Computed example of a mutant assay.
Amino acid sequence: MAAGVVHIPWYATLLRHERLAAALQEVAPIALKYGATEVQIHQSRDDRYRFDHMCWFESRLAWETFWESKEMILFRARYQGWYQIPVLYVWQDVLARIEVEPVAEEPAAPAAAPAEDTAAA
């Protein structure tokens, strides 16, 4: 099966967006333990209560193992009052992925030392 990315749309309940943001950041690395190759969590600037949690996996089975893991079941139970239910994730196949490496800046040339006055006084 082809690699895929799962989008998990979390939507915080009233006045809990900051606490949910912190909790999502804490849980993010757990996906790597279950075979995720990348994890990103985005928070909307237009709607601070809206989060998009994305996990890249090489197989759907690896994703399902993560989602049904003890850690994620505990996470969903512990914070269930902090987000709207249901959470309906979407598996999407990765068809293309292109990344641009940032160009390293050249170090600045050292400043020239001031010329000494060699004229006789």
Rank of each mutant, 00 (worst) to 15 (best):
D52S: 13
E106I: 06
G81D: 07
I41T: 06
S59C: 00
L32E: 04
L14Q: 13
E105T: 09
E38D: 14
E38P: 09
D52A: 11
V27I: 08
Q25E: 12
A115L: 07
P110R: 03
A109I: 09
C55G: 12
A22M: 10
D117Y: 06
E26K: 13
V90D: 12
F51Q: 01
T37W: 03
Y79H: 07
W56L: 10
R50D: 04
V100I: 13
V100W: 15
A111W: 08
W82L: 06
W63A: 00
E38Q: 11
T118F: 15
V90Q: 13
S59M: 02
S69C: 07
A77W: 10
V39L: 02
E68R: 11
A96Q: 14
S44A: 07
D93V: 14
Y34I: 00
T13C: 06
F57D: 00
A96W: 13
A36G: 01
D52N: 13
D46H: 13
M72A: 00
H53C: 05
G81E: 07
R50H: 07
V87Y: 04
R45T: 12
K33V: 09
M54K: 05
G81Y: 07
H42Y: 15
T37M: 03
G81K: 08
V87N: 04
L15A: 15
T118R: 14
P29H: 02
Y79G: 01
F75E: 01
D47C: 05
V94K: 09
T65N: 05
M54G: 02
A96H: 13
P86T: 01
Q43P: 10
A31S: 04
L88N: 11
A112V: 03
L61R: 14
V90A: 15
W56M: 10
L61V: 13
R45S: 12
G81P: 04
L74W: 15
M54L: 08
C55P: 12
E38H: 11
L14G: 10
L15E: 14
I98D: 14
L88F: 10
Q43C: 08
W91S: 00
T118E: 12
W63R: 02
L74E: 15
T65F: 01
F57Q: 01
P102H: 00
L61A: 14
Q80P: 03
P86V: 02
Q43Y: 08
Y89N: 04
I73K: 10
L95A: 11
E58W: 06
F51L: 01
R78C: 11
G81R: 07
W91H: 02
L74Q: 15
R45D: 13
V100H: 13
I30N: 10
P102F: 01
A112P: 04
W67F: 08
E105L: 12
P86N: 01
K70A: 11
Q80Y: 09
L74N: 15
A111L: 08
F66L: 01
R16Y: 13
A96S: 13
R97S: 09
R50L: 06
R50K: 06
D47R: 09
E101I: 11
C55H: 15
H42W: 15
M72G: 00
A21P: 06
I41C: 07
H42Q: 15
K33A: 08
A21Y: 08
H17V: 00
V39S: 02
K70H: 15
L32K: 08
A28I: 03
T13G: 05
D47N: 09
